[in-house]
Amino acid sequence: MQFIGLTLLAFTCLAAFPAATPALLAPIRSNGTLAAPSNFALELRAVIRQIPKDNIEDLVRIYLLNDVEFQGLIRTVNSVSAYRFYRQLTNQPEVRQLLQWLNQQLVLSGGSLKVFDYLELEIKVFNKYPFWPQLAHGIQGFQSDLSRIYPVQLIRSLLEPSASQTSPLLSELWRRLVALRPVYERVLATPAGKAITGELQRLGVDVGQLDALIRYQFGWSNASLPTYDYVDYFY
């Protein structure tokens, strides 16, 4: 569904020229020992697998089947205006550059862009449990529930260079993501970006909260976010 495509594009398909914002990146230090060869396809798959896809799928299903506000949001994200925004974002030179780079590196390591297929959601048309209708509380409820299960701090820690994350290609991916901030702001400032943002606000989406999450996830901001201990209380 296009909602998922837009979300994944915002969280995974961003790139920029390598010369931008190098000061934000932690240096990679060698301990003098010979490291084992890394495999980018396996490394990226390991990061993606940390996203609780099944839990997110059930959460979307709960709201899509039982919440009128959320149904309106899904219609908007699948609208012509949202598609125009999606196309404008994917047509940015930096985004095309990233997709080409990702594809090349994944192929060289025995993988492909299909690694992102793991994040595709399959929504069935019946409630799994009779109490599910009581768990849907509008768009703001969905945002709050999603923030409790999406591990934003963990994903950032797995991508950002550090003492524990020394993968050259993951570090290069992080560098490109960090440098994309001007592109993100440029696209949001276009008529298509303003239109979809305004429509989301009209529907009740906390656009500021969503923006803060995106900026933190990609290293454009170090502002603290609420920390939740994940509890599997939906299912």
Rank of each mutant, 00 (worst) to 15 (best):
A10C: 08
S224F: 04
L44A: 02
N91I: 07
V60D: 08
Q153R: 15
K194M: 08
P37I: 01
P130Q: 05
L106V: 07
W220Y: 00
A10V: 10
W174S: 01
V207N: 00
E69S: 06
L65T: 03
I123H: 03
Q143A: 02
I56T: 04
E172S: 08
F40V: 01
D58R: 12
L73N: 04
Q104N: 15
G72E: 14
A23C: 10
S112D: 10
Q217N: 07
C13Q: 14
L225Q: 12
Y63S: 00
V107K: 15
V77I: 14
Y233R: 08
Y86F: 15
T7V: 13
L200P: 02
Q209D: 10
P37A: 02
G111Y: 09
Q201W: 11
V60L: 13
A20G: 01
R148D: 07
Y150H: 06
V107A: 11
P27A: 00
S112P: 06
E160M: 14
L106D: 05
R202Q: 13
A36S: 14
A10I: 09
G72T: 06
Y184L: 06
A36I: 12
A195D: 14
T12I: 00
Q105A: 09
V187K: 02
R176S: 12
G111L: 06
Q50H: 11
Q165A: 00
Y230H: 07
R75K: 14
S221G: 00
V187D: 01
L188R: 08
V77R: 02
Q134G: 07
W174Y: 06
S144E: 15
T190D: 02
F142Y: 15
A189M: 04
T21L: 08
G193E: 05
D58H: 13
S144C: 14
F3Q: 06
S171K: 06
R176H: 11
L210S: 08
H137V: 11
I196F: 04
V80Y: 14
T190K: 00
